[in-house]
Amino acid sequence: MFSKIVTSALFAGFCAGLIAALVQIVFVQPVLLHAELYEGGDLVHFGADAVSAHPDLGGFDVMRNGLSVLFMALTYVGYAFILVAVMSLAAERGAVINTRTGLIWGIAGFVTWHFAPAFSLPPEVPGVAAADVFVRQIWWWGTVAATGVALALIAFGRSALAWGAAIALLVAPHLIGAPHPDSFTGPVPPEIAALFASRALGFGFATWVALGGLCGYFWQRENANA
């Protein structure tokens, strides 16, 4: 069992990490680079002449993009270990794990790690006003944990009590409320912040669905070869 988890997670996580790196470099990184120009004062939003909405962000940065590929590969291998480990527990209870069901697991992962926290604490570009990072991290991890348990109760619960607890866990972090700054200030145009939030969520959805499908595929293949 352990060898199947390790093999499936390594292959699935590495492949998903490459997909994540490509999506980030093409769609997310340009928005971040644009925001950094405002954060560093190279561009000014209010009280200055109009600037292009599509500035020249320079050429291909081998070092930066290479580190992005490495970071994404390591990150998604870690995600894959978590996902495959939970899949193995579900398989022991009779759940069918394959590429198709893996896609559903990937959507659940996206909801847990991206969508649910973003409902109250959306992805932020550099330079925007934000609450204390430690407080935000505590709220974010609490929301991830509550959402993950809630989705497990929905998927595997067999009583109204389990489903009621799931609903309570889904709602609780947002009723408590995410930490926000006392005032909203910052040099980055709101259009860039909105684009980054939408790109970040789209990035999360695409990569988690890919990760889930790959985990299901490699798990099924390892079982067939066992």
Results as ranks from 00 to 15, higher is better:
171 V>N: 00
194 A>H: 14
88 S>N: 14
197 A>K: 13
221 R>G: 03
2 F>C: 12
212 G>L: 05
208 W>F: 12
114 H>N: 13
28 V>F: 05
43 L>A: 04
62 V>C: 05
53 A>W: 09
44 V>A: 08
216 G>F: 02
4 K>I: 10
179 P>F: 08
207 T>F: 03
89 L>V: 10
78 G>K: 15
134 F>L: 13
172 A>L: 13
110 F>G: 05
81 F>H: 13
89 L>G: 06
32 L>N: 09
137 Q>K: 14
46 F>M: 09
66 G>E: 09
6 V>M: 15
112 T>E: 01
27 F>W: 12
48 A>R: 07
206 A>S: 15
37 L>F: 09
164 G>A: 00
150 A>H: 01
223 N>F: 10
79 Y>D: 08
127 G>W: 00
18 L>D: 03
200 A>D: 10
103 L>Q: 07
4 K>H: 10
81 F>E: 05
209 V>Q: 03
225 N>Y: 09
96 V>P: 02
48 A>C: 05
158 R>W: 01
23 V>A: 13
92 E>I: 07
80 A>M: 02
156 F>G: 03
204 G>K: 01
77 V>W: 08
216 G>M: 01
42 D>L: 14
158 R>F: 01
6 V>E: 07
113 W>I: 12
51 V>E: 04
29 Q>N: 13
204 G>T: 06
151 L>G: 02
33 L>A: 06
146 A>Q: 03
51 V>A: 13
223 N>L: 15
45 H>S: 13
154 I>D: 03
215 C>S: 04
189 P>D: 02
22 L>I: 15
166 A>D: 01
49 D>F: 10
